[in-house]
Amino acid sequence: MSTAIMVENTLNPESRKAQKVSKKGKGGFNKRTPVSWLVVAFMIASALAWISPLYLAFVNSVKTPEEYTTTGPLTLPSQISFEGILHFWEKADFSLKLWNSFQISFWVAILGVALSFFTAYAIGIGRVRGRFWILGLFLVAFTIPGEALMYPLLRMAKMVGLYDNIWALIIIFAVLQSAFGTYLVSSVMSDFPMELLEAARIDGAGSWRLLKDIVFPLVRPTLTVLMVFFFIWTWNEFLLPLVMLPSNDSQTVALSMGLASGQYTSDPTTQAAAALVGILPTLLFFLIFQRTLLKGVTMGSVK
């Protein structure tokens, strides 16, 4: 599958570049000309422009509202004030939102990966009949827009008493994301050396032991990557939380941010603070899982 191949390539984009540089050395066409200085200056300036909204959110979230009104959003704050941040944190009950988001994302990561792993085992190793169609169905399911499932899911959640309950979302996201996870894990599994599996079978290993002792250790890295993705995808979800979690106490970070957008228009420093504290957790994940995430951008392109 080309996705798998692309994932493979993203693993190491720098190494070949490094080779290339060393091969060419100083001479030839890679000299630093005035034009090349212009190009690099332009690139860096553009990249800085790209991150400037974040910088501005940061600068203004620690300003007092009075200073924002008098000197505007572009100047640095004359004194650091956490008023905006604290105001938003309290008003939005942000600690609770963080905890809700964390719980949902955590359980989706665990359950979604477990579902992906078992289903993929039957498909990739067990090669059950009809596997091609099942995978095709899963892949197609992944492109169905949430709007086309949302209302029936809402009714179902109400029927079983999980309306306004984070477990409704945990179950739904675990299943939806495992459709993609199954596709990915089974494609990794079908590349396994058959001799190894055959040898274990001849040694009398049953399907459970095969799964536990041979297959699981081999796919564990993939499963870890998948967990990170499921966690972050769930963290960022908006539509289904919007529909399924009406009450303030069960809302997620992303949802409360989306709803906050119209709330603080007359209070720009609080709005900047909201954007900032909303970004911080994701920034933290990114710094922790940077490699995994960049590796998987192409993988996620199926989404």
């Binding site: 909204p53 974040l54 501005l56 959110a57 963290w235 960022n236 908006f238 970070v253 992303a254 949802l255 941010m257 989306g258 906050a260 957008s261 119209g262 228009t265 720009p268 709005q271 900047a272 909201a274 954007a275 909303g278 970004i279 994701t282 920034l283 994940f285 990114f286 995430l293």
Partner: peptide, 14 residues
């Protein structure tokens, strides 16, 4: 890496 609702909030502000 910014969740889209937060990007939306950020730009609504700007």
């Amino acid at each position: 890496i910014i969740p889209i609702p937060i990007a939306g909030l950020l730009w609504t502000w700007m």
